[in-house]
Design a protein around this nucleic acid. Sequence first.
DNA 1: TTCTAATCTCAGACCCGGAC
DNA 2: GTCCGGGTCTGAGATTAGAA
Length: 271
Amino acid sequence: MATPKSPPRYEQILSWVFEKRHTAGSLQVSWDREDLDTGAEVLGLKRVKNLGDIPYTYRFRKDMPASINGTAPAGMEWIIRGAGDGKYRFDAIPTQIQIVPNPSLSVTKIPDATPEIITAAALNDEQALLAKVRYNRLIDIFLGVASYSLQSHLRTKVAEIGQVEVDEIYAAVDRYGRQFILPVQAKGGSDRLGITQVEQDMAACDVRWPNMICRNISVQFAGDLIALFDLTVQDDRVVIRREAHYKLVPSNEITVADLQSYGLAAGPEDA
DNA sequence: TTCTAATCTCAGACCCGGAC
DNA sequence: GTCCGGGTCTGAGATTAGAA
């Protein structure tokens, strides 16, 4: 009989930290970076050279190990939040809905204005997605505002959270002169969008642009469509304020019937 | 057996804050 | 103002699993 495969090193270490720090009934479990080293040592595992990769993996890439999530009260799940430099906290929060494109939503065709050279040169899905959103002004179309790309891959430090990265930041103004700051996360490949990401983006914008209204935008490829989400956090849950699907096509493929089928877009002031 | 996809891991880039 | 070290995350190579 084959020996059952042991869980990956990251999972064993994180589970050990949780088990060591968790007390029955508690909904918050604080721990720090050094615990990961201790865990590896106690478990007789090779030391992980990049300790920060462990929490990052279970915050943004993978599901929380079942050995940890299994201890959450009914209807809840554990997430990892930053709690300052080198400090983290497991928080039990209501089970999150997956932010995935709704297949029953209508599709709006947009004349594709992406320069061919950009499409050809994009190195990965995320880069291609952000370029298509930028060149086709999908943020403007989605929110009904005039938006301007401010910075790509903004990295900043937020007290109580730690380092935060936003894929792209837009500044925008609506017809009433209200100014918005729009953190945009492009999701593709194995990355997933969760409450941690949305909270971090909002916190970063709050620190850097306290006088502007923050709107969290997520963009995803959905087959040949681009899905845009306006997200927020309510009662510890990421919720979709608005969602729209766009298909970039040559302009001669858009018919009058297509145009007549589109309703009037709601701007952020209508949401 | 070979190929492909998924997963795991870590070197290096980068940001930030503290020390000087 | 500059340097340096700590911390975080990306991107990609290595490894493993599954399919053909």
